Simulated assay, not measured.
Amino acid sequence: MAQPARKIVGTTSTEPELPGRAREILDLVSAGMDSLEPPVIQNMVANLVRLGEMADEFNRPEMLELFREVARAGSNLRGLIAEIRELQETGTMTTLLELGRMVQAMKDSLTAGVVTGVLQQIVDAVAMMDQIQMLQGDRLVMGMIVAMQEAVKENKDKSPQGVLSLLRQLNDPEARKGLGIFTSFLQKLPAQLGFTN
């Protein structure tokens, strides 16, 4: 049989008089304590000691600074949560997740052969860019872009020309030269694409 807690703790019999409600609460606590076995009380005391040790750990300066940092980050976290909620409500989050799953599936489907094929295409593209650079292809492309911009600007506010007017422009040596280059390009293109018989 368990001994009353008052006997274990060693309280005195002279207890101060308390008001009615406080006396009821004290009697209830005393009855609860009296019904506890000594091992249970020892376990409670050990837990209280551990709780005190934890409080000491939290009272260290670095822990207090960590708590302050978390409090400062609270507004940022609230903003982030609001943005995530908005992404969910607009469906953007679902789209991002689907995109992530698609990228993961693509990553999972990469075999050694696929990787080798992609690397070969990259090498071919770099070699082609090097060849274009050696042949001053960048100058050709830039020349085409500038010529197109000038042509658009020159014809911006003009009404469309008739067929006879266009034919008269072929008398201009520069126009004939450009047309000759373009015609020669069209003649050589099928052979380069492998379309010749």
Rank of each mutant, 00 (worst) to 15 (best):
M1I: 09
M1S: 15
M1V: 12
A2P: 02
A2N: 12
Q3D: 14
Q3S: 14
A5H: 05
R6W: 12
K7W: 05
I8E: 07
I8C: 03
I8Y: 09
S13D: 14
L18C: 03
P19M: 05
P19W: 04
R21Y: 11
A22M: 13
E24L: 09
E24Y: 01
I25G: 01
I25D: 06
G32H: 10
G32L: 10
M33Q: 08
S35T: 05
S35F: 06
S35I: 04
P39N: 11
V40M: 11
I41K: 01
M44N: 08
V45F: 06
A46N: 13
N47G: 14
G52V: 01
A55G: 08
A55C: 08
D56T: 06
E57F: 09
R60A: 04
P61W: 02
E62R: 09
M63Y: 10
L64K: 15
R68F: 02
E69S: 08
V70F: 11
G74I: 01
S75L: 10
N76Y: 09
A82R: 12
A82Y: 11
I84E: 02
I84A: 08
R85I: 10
L87Y: 06
Q88W: 06
E89T: 15
T90S: 12
T92M: 15
M93W: 15
L97V: 14
E98P: 02
R101K: 14
V103Y: 13
Q104L: 12
K107W: 06
S109C: 04
T111Q: 05
A112S: 14
G113T: 14
G113M: 07
V115Q: 13
G117P: 03
G117I: 09
G117E: 15
V118A: 14
I122H: 10
V126L: 13
M128Y: 07
M128N: 09
M129T: 13
D130E: 13
Q131T: 12
I132L: 13
M134R: 14
G137M: 02
D138Y: 14
D138W: 14
D138N: 15
L140P: 01
L140F: 12
V141R: 05
M142Q: 13
G143L: 03
I145V: 15
I145A: 12
V146Y: 00
V146M: 11
A147F: 00
Q149L: 13
E150G: 01
V152W: 06
V152H: 07
N155C: 06
N155Y: 03
D157Y: 12
D157T: 10
K158T: 01
K158A: 02
K158C: 01
S159R: 03
G162T: 03
G162H: 00
V163C: 00
V163S: 01
S165F: 01
L166S: 02
R168Q: 10
L170P: 00
N171P: 00
N171F: 05
D172T: 03
P173R: 07
A175V: 11
G178Q: 04
L179H: 01
G180E: 08
I181E: 04
S184F: 08
S184C: 02
K188L: 10
L189M: 11
P190K: 02
A191E: 11
A191Y: 04
Q192F: 03
G194E: 01
G194M: 00
